[in-house]
Write a protein that binds this DNA or RNA. Sequence first.
DNA 1: AGTTTCACG
DNA 2: ACGTACGTGAAACTC
Length: 912
Amino acid sequence: MGKKLVLIDGHSILNRAFYGVPDLTNSDGMHTNAIYGFLNILFKILEEEQADYLTVAFDLKAPTFRHKMYKEYKGTRKPMPEELHQQVPIMKELLNAMGIKTVEKEGYEADDLLGTLAKKAEQEGISVSLVSGDRDLLQLASDKIKIRIPKTKRGKTEIEDYNTNDVIEKYHVTPLQIIDLKGLMGDTSDNIPGVPGIGEKRATAIIESFGSVEEAYMHIEEVKPPKARESLREHYDMAVMSKKLATIDTNAPIEFSFEEAKIEDFYTKEAFELIKRLEFKSILSKFGKDMSHNDNLEQAFSYIKTKKEAERLFSELEEMGKAPEFGKDMAVGIQILQREKDNNSKFSIGKDGQYSLFADKSEASSILGIGLAFGEKVFSVLANEEIKEDFLMKQIEKMAKAGFSYSTFQLKEQLNIFPVTEESKVYDLSVAAYLLNPLKDSYLYDDIARDYLMMTVPSYQELFGKRKIEEAFESKKEEVFNYLCYEAYVALKAKHVLFEKLEEENMKELYEEIEMPLVFTLYDMEARGIMVNKEELKEYGEQLEVKIHELEKNIYDLAGEVFNINSPKQLGVILFEKLKLPFAKKTKTGYSTSADILEKLKCEDPIVSMILEYRQLTKLKSTYADGLAAFISESDQRIHGKFNQTITATGRISSTEPNLQNIPIRMELGRQIRKVFIPKEDYVFLDADYSQIELRVLAHMSGDKTLIKAYKEEQDIHKITASQVFHTPLNEVTGIQRSNAKAVNFGIVYGISSFGLGQDLNITRKEAEEYIKKYFETYPRVKEFLDELVEKGKKDGYVESLFHRRRPIPELKSANYMQRSFGERIAMNSPIQGTAADIIKIAMIRVNRELKQRNMKSSLLLQVHDELLIETHKEEIDEVKEILQKEMFHAVHLEVPMEIDINEGKNWYEAK
DNA sequence: AGTTTCACG
DNA sequence: ACGTACGTGAAACTC
């Protein structure tokens, strides 16, 4: 095997990392995200390559030859953002400390140095992997030189590799012809002008048929289309110049010996210190376990194994609780470990079609252990032959009464055995971390240790893998002890850090007044569940089954063969190849067969309508009829779904296992399923929803006079909008105009784009643009408000709701137009959606609280974003209506009044 | 594990 | 030249 050299385009990878990794700073406020991303890419590459040599090339600040030539055409390059600029010298220092060779040379770009080194290596028989984000470098690809382009795809970095054949496959030209391609099409990121009117498509076609820019010019008469021909004729010198600009110099005069570039041990003392300063704990852990200081910490963990020790521990705590001077403010990190709730378990379906294995939350839960941290002490206690479960249970009750200040993770999941209330001093750090950054997908103790304590602690996965906790409890006792200690320790230590940040970011009140009380509200809702008529649900499913069978038969007949209708791939082939239906449009992997495409094909073939109906029915059968049935608890005939508080980016609640927030309503057949959701005996359902809460929030937050006035006068907002946008007197507005205006109003809330609106209304982008223009003329403050939000998002990196709920928007920094536009729409939508979420959260806390305080029989069961469902005792109907009206109305006082619709029914279908 | 489709606000 | 409306979750197919 020959030797291998890895070359890295320093600035290009830093740049990529900067835009791909969310903003990171160390405690000195130094931005570190680009360096972090760079290191991750570097380690990934090195792991894959097993290379012998490594070199990183940088550009020097002085204008280069190629750069200078271009300057004569047009201004300067976009300057590097300051946050990135400051990271460059640190990066170089770190590479230096790690003993990694770097090269830079005045008058040459990194490209030229990389090209020169790559060619040199190739000549010496060394194979090369050249890592860069710049596609310019593809011109260097050969069989020995592999160009590697990292791509950040949803947080993960994937690397595209190009040898000669890969370039030809992807771009239909040889590596050297990439230069000609750039000569014609230009490259905005490299400030290469190219030929006006020629883009990627035309450039590729021209080079494919002529081979080069020069050849094409010699046969200029044959160049097609005429537009490109004339442009090339006129701007030929521009093309030649662009080619020169795009050509990488492979003969840069640099001194280089492979010996210097040899890969040695990176893990030096200097590098360790520097990485510590950068606070990259996860990378630090690569530096060997002996360097991490968790060993010391683990030595301080105490494992309580005898009842005697346990009794002493808990009585010590009890004493402290009694001490008047600090008892009540004593901070305790606590985590209770219990058997996995049956709520999460898989269901077994017996032969008789009965679903079994489901316990509801009131069923006695069994406790496996407790982790505790207070002062400098960290303990864990596990249940055993001596320490019985009910002993632990009693201790937990005593502790709860002692009234310490408890901090923990995922509190809602512990409330079934941890007897604390809204009034207790108890804090859920997972919820706190969610407020500080709602974009993460996990808020477990190891995530919080990493993000806020800069510590690497073993995750559940690392300790137990895919094992269930019960199993680990039997076979890996020591790890369970350790696990609980870590949890308690982090719960205690991270509290201050998180609370300080909440304070800093103005979210203390949001946390204390809304999110923490909500934990208890959601727990109540989950524990109550909602009753479902199992027999009726089964019947509904059977009816669907019959219809599905009929349709299936008819579809196979029309198609002339049996195939899987549920497979978009097979369906696409049948529709667009076999039956040759038109509009065979789009998608990455094949034909699109989505409803809006099929809707347009309805007249072409009767099979299309059948497929649409088939889709609808199978959806209802699998997701709702069968899906819901699997969640009905044997013991109480109720479904105990989960309400998740730390999922959405905007602050909304989400619902899972099953999702009770997407039960059908728009189509009558689907809507019927709501009839199986019923109140218990002697109760009815009351369903209360906010009318147009998001538009009202928009009216308030923007302060638009016209919009506010309309709501104050209780006018039909869509009709008014229609009248203004379409220049029609109010009483002449047609139904169609009104529904179009409604779509515009929706669009505004979603962060309007003319394309999106056009798509939704099936009109041209141009027409949609006109609607939007008119809308903004009607409500001028709305436009200003939305513009300000985007501006704020760009300036601060986040936007916020009325109650200061934050939504970071890393997309706004993206160099990619699509991503950035997405960021802009998020900036416009999140404060509105987030404020609406805040408001209904306040309402549900208060409604739940009020019903409990008045000792009423009625209770809150569901929240569906702007709607609350209450199981109401027949004798309490009027009182509950009053409570709903009052608490929902007064949840917040905006410039415009809230309007609440309340309906009553003997099932969810009737009540909505 | 990722994609497509579709249910809701 | 590009290719989208904002926010979710579940099921089924595909690899």
